[in-house]
């Protein structure tokens, strides 16, 4: 762990990269490409988060265990998001979302 520490300039480069990515994400959000925008925004966000975690939070220089713990947490959070979201997307028998009272008025005989 007590190897070489990043210099001031390393932090500076990461900072510039983060700001650049933020501006890029901002700019791309005006492109008329529909749902692709969401994917781009999430990807750029993930990249930024990775930069912060790796360099500002020094995960690159940490021991394996310290990298493992947040990785497992992130993996579980992703699983939670994906499987939960998969539910409304793939509902067939049941309505995808609650309906306003008028719309879901009795359909029976």
């Amino acid at each position: 762990m007590e190897t070489r520490h990043p210099s001031f300039w390393h932090y500076g480069i990461v900072y510039v990269a983060l700001m650049g990515l933020a501006v890029l994400s901002f700019g791309l959000s005006f492109l008329p490409i529909g749902g692709w925008q969401d994917a781009i925004a999430i990807l750029i966000g993930a990249l930024k988060a990775l930069l912060v975690a790796a360099y500002f939070m020094h995960l690159v220089e940490q021991r394996f265990a310290n990298r493992l713990v947040p990785s497992v947490a992130v993996a579980l959070a992703v699983i939670l998001v994906v499987i939960t979201t998969l539910d409304p997307i793939t509902r067939k028998t049941f309505p995808r979302a609650p309906m306003p009272l008028e719309a879901s008025a009795p359909v029976g005989p």
């Binding site: 997307i89 793939t90 509902r91």
Partner: peptide, 14 residues
């Protein structure tokens, strides 16, 4: 966790 939701209105795939 989802096996608690079989009759709750969850999707077939889940």
């Amino acid at each position: 966790w989802g096996h608690h939701l079989f009759v709750a209105g969850m999707s077939e795939l889940d």
